[in-house]
Design a protein around this nucleic acid. Sequence first.
RNA 1: GCCCGGGUGGCGGAAUCGGUAGACGCGGAGGUCUCAAACACCUCUGGCCGCAAGGUCGUGCGGGUUCGACUCCCGCCCUGGGCACCA
Length: 951
Amino acid sequence: MATDTLPTPAEEDVPPQRYSGLLAGEIEARWQARWAADGTFVVPRTTDAGPGGKFFLMDMFPYPSDAGLHVGHPLGYIATDVYGRYLRMTGHTVLHTLGYDAYGLPAEQYAIATGTHPRVTTEANIARYRRQIGRLGLAHDPTRSVATTDESFYRWTQWIFLQIYGSWYDETQGRARPIRDLIAGYEAGELTTPDGRRWSELSSVERAAALDARRLAYRSKVPVNWCPGLGTVLANEEVTAEGRSEIGNFPVLRRELTQWMMRITAYADRLLADLDRLDWPESVKTMQRNWIGRSEGVQILFPVEGQEPLEVFTTRPDTLFGATYVVVAPEHPLLDRAVPEAWPDADLPERWRAGEASPRRAVEAYRARVAAMSERDRQAATGDRTGVFSGLYATNPATGERIAVFVADYVLAGYGTGAIMAVPAHDQRDFELARALDLPIRPVVAAGDGRDPRDASSWADAYPGAGELICSANGHVSLDGLGVDEAKRRIVTWLEGEGLGAARVTYKLRDWLFSRQRYWGEPFPIVYDDEGVAHPVPETMLPVTLPDVDDYRPRATDLDAEPQPPLSRAEEWVQVTLDLGDGSRRYRRETNTMPQWAGSCWYELRYLDPDNEERFVDPEIERFWMGPRDGDDTGGVDLYVGGVEHAVLHLLYSRFWHKVLFDLGQLSSEEPFRRLFNQGYIQAYAYTDRRGVHVRADEVVERDGGFWYHDEPVERHYGKMGKSLKNGVSPDEMCDLYGADTLRLYEMAMGPLDVSRPWETRAVVGSHRFLQRVWRNLLDEHTGVPTVVDEPPDAETDRLLHATIAAVRTEMEHLRFNTAIARLIELNNHLTAQAAPVARAVAEPLVAMLAPFAPHAAEELWSRLGHHRGLAFEPFPVADPAKLVATTVTYPVQVAGKVRGSLEVPAGSDEQSVRDAALALPKVRRALAGRAVAKVVVVQGRIVSVVPAAG
RNA sequence: GCCCGGGUGGCGGAAUCGGUAGACGCGGAGGUCUCAAACACCUCUGGCCGCAAGGUCGUGCGGGUUCGACUCCCGCCCUGGGCACCA
């Protein structure tokens, strides 16, 4: 817009000391400089908080993107800052800082596109974030702001990796232990090696393998999303629905590759159980519970002709008599060795054979087809059930029947045992395959929904519900007539007695794929010897620094080649001569890097002790800030605020690392985050013209019930704020226009913290006007001199002040900043309406209460009111209980449930006098219209309800 | 499909041990100031009927409990999010 070409309006019209955006900007710069110079918010490296206690306050740290901030980003940061400032004013020692999650893909992709080193991009982005966030006046400790890309930080990320690598999970003790205990256990014969041989009989390579089999960080061949075009594996969310890479649109295949894994599944039960001890939103706990996916079932052995018995997992052992076939996952190892060369029977149904000449060919074709599909495709294809006969037969251990073993993609290799007993009558998926391949369906639970309980031929779907067991007896056990739960118990008892099965708990949670074929991440502190055995890099040699390379691109190779991470081409770095205790030898470094989650798994700990060069965190300091408080407390950060998008991954991974470190005696706290709060998001309207192209949202006007862009009608929708929708608003713009204090106040006033809401730039002026009015009530707008008087306030104002203090304190404690602000506005509106000089005894508490929200303006007012010490550590006002007691009470009076009048009586009036006064009200008498009074309800201090007689 | 949230004026929201629905803010209308505009300030602002006094309807929909229901109970509808072949 072209305002800058118009004559400047007469500035002298505006009083020089009016609280304008310009003045706010000047004040803010001044106070920020003073806080920085005085080190106001630097937290001493203390382990003594004094009588007020300590508080460790944290935000989820940002990834510094090149797009910079929009006004939605700092919502949580402002909220924690407001709360932190309140806590300081109520005597707490507050630890609050902000670091940067600086490894990540965008910087790497920018490097691929432009050749700029990711470190250059990242550092520039961090600097920009610091400047933008700094303008908001957040009371962070600047000396504790870390970045995950700092050598002094990732050195300890690598160190923690080595701790995990150097540990195993002792199931009997339910905790991680150092690997040397495992070696001792193997040596002493207390623990059996994977293949059962004695430790002393194993070669060095075999010993390494025996240890790797139980390490918490281990290498394994796992199916991954392999993208040959990009030369890397991809995360599921980087693969499109069409099974191609989001970037470049290359085909993505499922492929088994050797990758680093973290044995998070060892912690499944503790990660689940300890959720109950955390003060987290119930929704996040539920998501984690679902993700961990504990289910109790039974593992049952099905004998297979000519083979080892097949183990299946089921949660419905009660339906064992209805198992008419068995299904194994396409990846099941049984298929690698046991599939026969020829069909066992000449007259097999055509559909079982999939048109192939032999089971081996049928299974191979099926496996190849499944392997070519992405996980997504595989799950999308639920409509058409497919499967082939393996040529093998098993025996149902309950009925003794010979039943066929099928291969079908709906059975997943990674869950349970990768094999199921199919009960088509009572499982929908089994039912569908049975219908598709014409397999027998035998009901064993009587359906109570009207269908024929004994003949499934007319059923439209499976019956998964409860009911009475039928057709479920052999010579040794009978379930007939039992309910599902009782039948489960009885069959399990029988199976266990026969040695055919055992109760087992299974989890959906999988081990964590921890390596990436990328450049911009933490190198693994691992080297390999000539035999391919992995060795940890000694702690004293950390960090293993990330070398420079000239090409950040993962190498595009042919389909079958192993991926070549960018680091593999840094030959001088890869080849290393080390003395690991047996003399100098040549080793090759691990060339994968860690995933972006690594740094965020432990950054809260580094905030505590960022300069420590001896340890990742000093134990005393960790105990002080994060240690458990009482019997069942887990310890952890006192309040962690961030978006709900991290409900599962980040918050599960960091819990896992924390627990490992706790088990190893490195930490006193059992959980990283004692209390979690999810803030909502700020979203924004976006507008498209009739071509569907986004137009600049800040140039759209609302008129005649529609939206217009340069006199063209446009359509409005709602979405994320950002460049692509042309609806971004930066905090800088708001600071320029109104000042940071206004922006802070607006973001806190627009709604409860946990609720998402639309941004509305034109509404920001409301918060600005409020500050302007406070300013005008306390200072002369022309001279800037305080106008407050030392006389005491009138009784009404005094009561309102104390009621406000009490209310604001309550709201602040509960993070309800929007209603706290509303109370402050009400108090100030009252002062405005009085149109008289404000008493100092009101002005000062008002300024102090404003300080958490608008710290710069509050400091400025505080100082102009004659205080030389800053406001940051001034005590928050305390309400005088004597002044909270009202002298009169106003009762609304209802007649027949409708409010007809109101009644003011002295506080403490007895019920009888309230009732009499209410009935005497003319409006009440009129509403009664001559009817008799059946009953009068008087709720002390609340309401009077008059019930007229019927008729 | 399963599991969590959430539906209140034109808009963001307030009020839930059941007790005057719409605090506070935006927007809107009118006014003051100004040559004028912007800023600022003042008044009004849920719908309908009414000159007014007042009446009446009203918290997604339909029932219920109660002197009294946004709040509790039953049955729906809509919507945001998470998970999704987990045997």
